[in-house]
Amino acid sequence: MTDFAIDLKDVDKLYGGVFSRRVHALRGVDMRVGRGEIFGLLGPNGAGKSTLVKILMTVIRATRAMGTVLGRPVGNKPTLARVGYLPEHHRFPDYLTGRQVIEFYGAMSGVSRHERRKRAAELLDFVGMGKWADTRVRGYSKGMRQRVGIAQTLVNSPDLVIWDEPTDGVDPVGRRDIRQMTVELKRKGTTVMLNSHLLSELEMVCDRVAILVQGKVSSQGTIDELTVHRQRYEIEVSAGDSHVDAGVRKALAGWLPDGALEGRLEGGQTLKANFDSPHLPALITVSTADAQPVQPIIDALRNARLTVRAVKPIRPSLEDLFMEAVTDPVTGRTLAPGAKEGA
C-alpha cells in the first residue's frame, strides 16, 4: 500500500475545443498528499484548484492524468466509496431534511441502511445539527447547510475527505468548530484535503500545503519546509546616546568588513545590518532558523556595550508564501487571476 492518499503525476486539463476558447486549466500537476495528514491546496482564483479536485472526484475528465487516489488509479469509481467530498457551492435537494440528506448520500456511497441511520444521528450531533435533523434543508442557513454538507462527507467513514471551501459562509464559531472537526478526523487517521482561500485557517491546521498558480504547483511541502529558507532572526540594537551604526559596524567588523552592510557567517548564513538613523535602534537580520549561529553576534554586540533590545525568530506566514508564489519574480507584480489560454 502506498504511503500517499493522493499521488498525482502530470495531471493536465485543457478546456474548450474547435468551437470554444481553449483554456489550459492544469499544466502537468504533480502533487502528493500523505495518509493521515491535513493537506491544504491554495491558489488564486482560476488557478485550477477546483478543476483538480473535480478530476479527483470524477466530476471532470482529465485530458491526461497519472497517479493514484487511495492506491487506485485516478478516476476509479469504486475508490470513491472511501472518499467524502464537499463541493464548493453545493446544493442539496431542498425537500430533504438534514437527516435524509446524509442518509441519501450514504446510500449512494454504498452504506447499509442500518449503518447510515446510525451514522446520520452521530454525525448530526458531531456537526452540531442534532436539533435540526428533521427540518427541511430549505429552512437552513448557509452555515447550517455547510455543517450538513460536512456531515454527509463522513457518512461512509471515509479514508480521505476533500472539502472545497468548507468555511464559506460560516461564522467564526462555525469556523472554529470545523477546525476542530478537521483535527478530530486527523486524530482518527482520516486524510483531509482542504481547498480554501482562508490562509490563516489553513495555517492553523494544515500539515502540508501546495500552492497552485496558473495550473501548476509552484511549491508544496510542510509550512516549515517551505519557509526554512525564508526564516530569520532579527536583533534590535540601540546604543544609548552614541551613534548606533558606528557601534554595530565596530562590533560586527569580523563579519561586515570595510563598513559593508551585508556579510556572511561561518556557516554561510547571511547577515544584514539596517540603520534608519544613528539615534534609532538598528535592525540586524541573520538568515537562519537555528538560534546557535546568532549567539556569537549577540555576544559581539554586548561586548561592544550595545543594548540588545530584542531577538526575534521570524517565520514567514502562509500569506507571505502565497503572495510570493503569485508574484511575478521578474516584474514584481501579482500574476493575473485565471488559467492560461491556449495549449
Binding site: 466530476v59 469509481k77 466509496a81 453545493h90 446544493r91
Partner: peptide
Amino acid sequence: VAGGSIDLMLSKPIA
C-alpha cells in the same frame, strides 16, 4: 445537472 448538485452525485461510486 445543475452546479453543486451534480458534483455530489458524480463523486459517488456509481457509473
